[in-house]
Computed example of a mutant assay.
Amino acid sequence: MRRAHGEKLQLCDSLEKIADALPGVDHLMCLSTANAILPLLRSIHQYEETVIFPAYEDAVVGSDANLASTRRLRAEHVEDECFAGEVTEILLAIGHGEPVENPEAIGFMLRGFFESMRRHIAFEREHVLPMIGIADAR
């Protein structure tokens, strides 16, 4: 999980750099980031849903509130992957030389995506990982 969180946070940092640079972006950075988003998220989400969340659910058996947390996190995975698809399309277009016609809107979109991922990671670090014996996942 430390590695997975680290990779997701590196992705967030790349997205933030792109958002900060708009409209003058590094086309290669847009392309490499776009190509990394969905494979990275799908891999990490699959790992969390098959390994981490079941371990967490076993650790908190009998607490409906905590089981609701994993249901919410799974739903966030679906939302994140849908949002990631939209972000990927935008970054690929920019990376291939499409003009950035509305940098404010694109920046807002990128920030919404990476801030949501950072909140997800923070929740896992504060609530999920300590319950399964991972005290500090940073």
Rank of each mutant, 00 (worst) to 15 (best):
E101C: 05
R2T: 15
D64V: 07
L31T: 07
C30N: 00
R72M: 09
S43V: 13
A105P: 00
E76I: 02
H27E: 09
R2I: 15
P39T: 07
R71C: 07
R3E: 15
E81D: 13
S63N: 09
E124P: 04
A4W: 08
L22R: 09
R111G: 06
M131T: 03
A122W: 11
G133A: 01
E48I: 08
L28F: 11
E7T: 13
D80R: 07
A55C: 08
E124H: 05
H45A: 12
A137K: 10
C12M: 12
I37P: 05
E126W: 05
E115G: 11
R72L: 11
V61N: 01
F83I: 10
D64T: 10
E115F: 01
Y56E: 08
H77T: 08
I52A: 03
I121Y: 05
I44N: 11
L40G: 09
L129D: 02
L40N: 09
G62F: 02
M1E: 13
R3Q: 15
L110S: 01
E104V: 13
Q10P: 03
L91Y: 01
D80F: 09
L91N: 06
S116P: 05
A93M: 06
I90P: 11
R3A: 15
V51R: 12
P99S: 06
K8V: 15
T33C: 01
Q10E: 06
E101A: 07
S14L: 03
I37H: 00
R138P: 09
D58I: 01
I106G: 01
R72K: 09
R111M: 07
A84V: 02
A68T: 12
P54K: 10
N35D: 14
Y56N: 04
A21M: 07
H96T: 09
E76G: 06
F113I: 00
Q46W: 12
M131V: 02
V78C: 15
H77I: 06
H127Q: 14
S69V: 15
E126D: 15
V25W: 01
E101G: 07
V100S: 02
L110G: 00
G95L: 00
I52V: 15
S116R: 05
C30Q: 00
E98D: 13
M131H: 05
S43M: 10
A34V: 03
P23V: 12
R111D: 05
Y47I: 09
D58E: 11
A59N: 04
M1K: 13
L41I: 08
